[in-house]
């Protein structure tokens, strides 16, 4: 098992997905199967190979420094599950 239950718990926390205790074992098995299978990449010598950074060779394009938007408050908040007075609202965050 390359991904034990504690690891599942840890990455689920990082990914902010609630996982029940009962789900841990099957997830651990699934993820391990997949990750054990990708281990075969270790067979390939990649010491002097650069990682791919762009799929198609081209130069990055930039935008001009021009304001292109009117007030989009309505558009931006209209799909919000909860909002008030143009703000998105969430359970109180304590810093």
């Amino acid at each position: 098992m390359s991904v034990d239950e504690n690891t599942v718990r840890r990455i689920a926390k990082l990914a902010r997905i609630a996982v029940t205790e009962e789900e841990l074992a099957p997830l651990s098995k699934d993820l391990s199967t997949i990750l054990d299978w990708v281990e075969q990449l270790g067979e390939v010598d990649t010491d002097h190979v650069p990682p791919m950074t762009s799929v198609v060779e081209m130069e990055i394009k930039m935008r001009k420094d021009i304001v292109r938007h009117d007030n989009l408050q309505k558009q931006v908040t209209q799909n919000a599950p909860q909002s008030e007075d143009g703000f998105f609202t969430v359970p109180k965050v304590i810093e």
Binding site: T46, V49, M52
Partner: peptide, 11 residues
């Protein structure tokens, strides 16, 4: 994992 896979992609 990630860097290795991106290197494989180059290959």
């Amino acid at each position: 994992y990630y860097i290795k896979a991106q290197k494989i992609r180059t290959l």
